[in-house]
Amino acid sequence: MLNVQTSEIENRAVKLGTTDGTKVHAKDVNVYYGDKRALFDVTVNIPDRSVTAFIGPSGCGKSTFLRCINRMNDTIPICRVTGKITIDNEDIYDPSLDVVQLRARVGMVFQKPNPFPKSIYENVAYGPRIHGLAGTKAELDHIVQTSLEKAALWKEVKDRLNDPGTGLSGGQQQRLCIARAVAVGPEVILMDEPCSALDPIATAKVEELIDELKQNFCIIIVTHSMQQAARVSQRTAFFHLGILVEEGATNDIFTNPTDKRTQDYITGRFG
C-alpha cells in the first residue's frame, strides 16, 4: 500500500515536470477590458503546496490576475487575455483545453461568502455531482464529510447537514465555500479576499484553515491586509497599477523590499 502512495507521488512529480515545485507559471500576461488595459506583462512563478499572497492597492489588478488563473474572466464579455499561463506546464488558454475541467482543478473562494440557497450537504455535494466524482451515495457522503473536515466545519454542522447553507454565520459560510471548493479535489485554490467580509474571530479561523490546507494545495490569496499576507503566506507578490512590481519570499518583501513603491505601500504611504 505504501508503495502505491509513493508511486502516486512520483507520478505527480513526473506530471509536474518541474523540479523547483512551480505549480502555476505566468508569462507576459496582459488583460484588457474593452480598450482599457488592466494588466501589463505579468510574469510570475507560483510554487505548489504553499500560500502565495497578492497584495496591492485597490484596482491594482491583483484580483484580475487571480481570475485569469481559472479563466473566470471568460464570463465577462469585453475582457481579453493575452500571454501564457500554465499549470503543470499545461497552457490553460490552449483552445483544446476545456474550461470546465480547468475550473475543477483550480478551485475558487470569493470575497463575499456565496453559499447556494441549498442545504449544507447539497452545497458541498454540488461539485462532485456535476463532475460525476461519486458513483454511490456512500462515496458522496464520504466526500462531503472529508471536505467539511478539511474546511474545519464538520464538527459544527455534522448534525444539521440538511439545514440551508445560507443560515450559517458569515465565517461558517466562508468555510462552507472552502469545503465546496475542496470537494471537487482541486490542485490550486484561488482565494479572492476571503476574509474581507468576516469579523476578526472568523478571520482567524479561516487563516488557520488556510495554513493547514497549504500542505495539500497550491493556494493563491488576494488580500487587502498586509498583516494577513504576512501571517499566512510564504511568498508575496505586490501589484501596482496593473504591474507586478515585486515578487519574492514574504519575509523579504516585508522586511527588505527592493522597489520604492513596495516600500511605500507596506509602510502605509498609500493604498
Partner: peptide, 24 residues
C-alpha cells in the same frame, strides 16, 4: 456571486442555470 460560485467549481452554464439559478 452565485453564478460565479458555480462557474468557479467548473459547472457549465446550463448546469449553473438548472442547479443554482432556477432553484434560487
Amino acid at each position: 456571486s452565485l453564478r460565479e460560485g458555480s462557474y468557479g467549481l467548473g459547472a457549465t452554464q446550463s448546469e449553473t442555470i438548472k442547479r443554482v439559478i432556477l432553484p434560487a
